Measured scan of single mutants.
Amino acid sequence: TLDDSATICRVCQKPGDLVMCNQCEFCFHLDCHLPALQDVPGEEWSCSLCHV
């Protein structure tokens, strides 16, 4: 889900339109996540760090 609060991106440390991982609660810009996300993920989304 998009989170436009004062939360910062885990990768670039900047605020903005972010998606939050449902497991670790880290936030990412779509372009900062590795691999980059093309679209906003669904409600139950886990980042690539949680899939390691």
Score class of each variant (00 low, 15 high):
V11H: 02
C12Y: 00
Q13G: 12
C24R: 02
V52L: 05
W45Y: 09
Q23T: 12
D4C: 15
S5I: 12
S48E: 12
F26T: 02
S5V: 05
P41A: 05
T7W: 04
E43H: 14
E43R: 09
C21F: 00
C32Y: 04
G16D: 14
F28P: 01
M20S: 11
L30I: 04
C32W: 00
E44G: 12
T1A: 15
L2V: 10
F28T: 07
C47N: 05
V19P: 00
D4T: 14
F26V: 06
P15A: 13
W45S: 12
D17H: 13
R10E: 04
D39N: 03
E44I: 05
E43G: 11
P35D: 04
G16L: 04
E44W: 03
T7C: 04
C9I: 00
C47W: 00
G16E: 06
S5L: 02
A6W: 01
V19K: 02
V11Q: 10
D39K: 07
L34A: 15
F28K: 04
V52T: 11
F26H: 05
L18H: 02
L37D: 07
A6N: 15
L2T: 15
H33V: 13
L49W: 14
D4K: 15
G16V: 01
S46A: 14
L18C: 06
V11R: 10
L49F: 15
P35G: 08
C47F: 01
S48V: 03
V19M: 09
L18K: 02
H51Q: 15
C21N: 02
C21Q: 01
Q38G: 09
G16R: 05
N22I: 06
H51I: 07
Q23H: 03
C47S: 06
C27S: 15
D3C: 03
C9Y: 00
D31T: 06
A36H: 09
E25Q: 11
R10H: 15
D31M: 05
C47Y: 01
H33Y: 07
T1E: 11
T1W: 01
P15N: 05
D4G: 08
E25D: 07
P15I: 05
L2S: 13
G42W: 06
E25T: 12
V52M: 07
H33G: 09
K14S: 05
D17Q: 09
L2I: 11
Q38M: 04
M20N: 06
L34Y: 14
S48C: 06
L18T: 15
H51P: 15
H33I: 06
F26A: 12
P41R: 07
H33W: 04
V19G: 01
H51M: 13
F28R: 07
Q23A: 05
Q13I: 07
M20A: 06
P35C: 04
F26K: 15
S48R: 14
A6Y: 05
E25K: 08
C9P: 06
L34S: 15
Q38H: 07
D31C: 02
L49A: 15
N22W: 04
L49I: 12
F26E: 13
V19C: 03
T7Y: 13
C32G: 02
C9D: 01
G42A: 13
F28M: 06
C50L: 01
P41G: 09
H29Y: 00
G42K: 14
T1F: 15
L30V: 12
S5T: 09
A36M: 04
L30C: 10
C50Q: 06
C21P: 02
L37F: 05
V19A: 02
L2P: 15
S5E: 06
F28E: 06
Q23W: 05
D3T: 02
W45F: 06
L49S: 15
Q23K: 10
V52P: 13
N22K: 13
C32P: 04
E25A: 08
G42P: 11
E44A: 08
E43I: 11
S5F: 08
E43Y: 03
C32I: 00
S48P: 15
V11S: 06
Q13W: 12
Q23I: 05
W45H: 11
L18V: 06
P41L: 05
D3F: 13
V40A: 06
D39Q: 09
C32L: 00
R10V: 10
P15L: 02
C32H: 03
D31K: 03
L37N: 06
C50E: 08
L37C: 12
